[in-house]
Amino acid sequence: MKKTRQPFDPGHFKVGVLALQGSFREHLAVLKRIGVEVVEIRLPEQIQDLDGIIIPGGESTTIGKLAVDFDLLNPLREFGGKKAIWGTCAGAIMLSKDAHRNQPLLGLMDITVDRNAFGRQIASFETELDIPALDIISSAPSSFPGIFIRAPLITAVEGEAEILANLPDGRIVAARQGHLLATAFHPELTDDDRVHRYFLHLIQEKRAS
């Protein structure tokens, strides 16, 4: 596991993970390991007293449908207007304003995504990513293990949104817009917790503002 600086006490954070479908247990495990209090979100009333929410990887059509069926879209939108949300893969698609397809989205970030942008499963890959923003929370900057599974790409970053990471060929795989974070890859499948800590940093920043 990577050694990281502790700029704040993770025990002071309560983070919810959307647990409708997908890799929510993996996110919960990383958060628990760094000492964050966690909540599984399946119903709107579970979005209470949270400092931040993670939308995990999974199938965005399934997560979107269940979010509609259990009246979670508007509560998530309202939450994202005030507090931090991070989406990984399917979660990043949910945060976007446009996925070139008719499916329920939160539309919180000024980003456009292209689903399954690398092709089918056979094209899924691992690569090292350079993410300069992580220098804030790590004393020893190094590349981050990017795991891309039937992954989306961020094809446009507009307005307040900014790019956090690119592939070597320049294609965009992570973006931030204030306290909102989108990654096309899966930090929850690695034992490197720096992106999770970076998300806590966004929560902290939002609190202080």
């Binding site: 647990a19 409708l20 479908q21 997908g22 890799s23 929510f24 247990r25 993996e26 990887g57 999974g58 199938e59 399934t62 893969c89 399917a90 499963q121 899924s124 890959f125 691992e126 795991i147 891309f148 599974i149 039937r150 899966h186 499948l189």
Partner: peptide, 13 residues
């Protein structure tokens, strides 16, 4: 990792 990972993304489904 990516083979096993796709199954992880299908969990709860």
């Amino acid at each position: 990792t990516t083979k096993k990972g796709l199954a992880q993304m299908l969990k709860g489904g």
